[in-house]
Amino acid sequence: MEQDKRPAPPARKGRGAVTNNDSHRFNLPSRQADGDWLDDREALGDSPTKLRTQVTTETPKSILSFNTSPDIPFDRSINAYRGCEHGCIYCYARPTHAYHDLSPGLDFETKLFAKPNAAQLLRETLAKPKYRPAPIALGTNTDPYQPIEKRYRITRTILDVMLETRHPVGITTKSNKVIDDSETLAALAALELTAVAISVTTLDPQTARLLEPRAPSPVKRLAAVRHLRALNIPVHVSIAPVIPAITDYEIESIVEAAVDNGAQSVSITPMRLPHEVAPLFEQWLEAYFPDRKNKVMNIIASLRDGKKNDPDFHSRMKGKGPWAKLLHHRLAIASRKHGLGKARFTLRTDLFQRPLVKGSQMELF
């Protein structure tokens, strides 16, 4: 296949994607970025062309998303936000922004959507007579503790409903801000209603800054693991994704650091590049790791049946071929060395208490 000879566009400090690559599945008209804005927090920096985060409030009519995927341990989830300011270049959720006629590139990390009525919608859903409880996952698409959570506190209000109704909830995040809700999480954990998975992709702060520019540092995430475990909250560490020739050498070190901070289990997910993530990631490689771009992409192809992505159930999470087997073998050895088993966080459903919704007939009793 002919290589693109065009020079890589310049990287933007503090952002993950290099461009707003507008070539995507829906063939919508190509458009230019809406311009550069000065960010109040960054105006004192050395670059006058920082993109400011914009947040749009939306009021959906439903909040639970259901799935029938056989390779994930939950069948329902809540995403309080669309888009994610963390800006992780590898994020598999980037393509969802194309549904809004926005770019999976810079738009995904700068033009966000928040759902302030999430907790109320959740209460109404849980109050329905036909609803049957099962663990709800937070953070399956975009991070529930990305920076704008400090302002909107939507995740916190969802957790309040979970505690009130004794409903099980699992959290996936790469932010130490999860400890802001330690009190609520500890109360849920005491009832065996929650577990937290914290993603640690690399221990190297420089690599983390390039991969996940606005996510908290690895040191802070590991400190969050330690903080949560001190409160008897179950914690899992996810090494996701493992990027060949860039972060794969760190598997054993991350396992050791996770155990040292109290993690009870560790898992890995090899790199995958669905839809528009592939060209964005290649641009990122060209900007930051041009010397090893071909090597990285060739190994990813070896993990994915010669392609950039494998959407098939089960194999999408594990990868295929010798490289995948080697990664999982290394994890198994490191886990045994540190006395780790597989993640088994069973959350209770038998404590569920259906909530009362204001104005409902149940308020009469």
Rank of each mutant, 00 (worst) to 15 (best):
T56G: 03
E282W: 03
K115Q: 07
I246Q: 00
E212P: 02
G139C: 07
P144C: 07
T201E: 02
R12K: 14
P116K: 00
A11V: 00
S62N: 12
P168S: 06
L44W: 14
L203M: 05
L193Q: 01
D305A: 14
Y145L: 12
G105P: 05
H328T: 11
S23Y: 13
F74D: 06
M317H: 15
L138V: 06
R153A: 02
P168Y: 05
Y99L: 15
V235E: 10
P135G: 06
I89Q: 09
K342Q: 11
V259C: 01
H314I: 14
R304I: 15
L285C: 01
P95K: 02
P133S: 02
A257G: 04
P60M: 05
T194G: 02
R336N: 12
A186G: 07
Y131T: 05
A197C: 07
N176E: 14
L188E: 01
Y99A: 14
H314E: 08
T68W: 13
T110R: 01
D180G: 04
L193N: 02
P241A: 06
L102K: 09
T173A: 10
S62M: 08
L28V: 07
I198S: 05
L64P: 09
P205V: 04
D260G: 14
S30P: 03
N20C: 13
S315N: 10
N261P: 07
E85V: 02
P168R: 00
V235T: 06
R82F: 13
A186N: 07
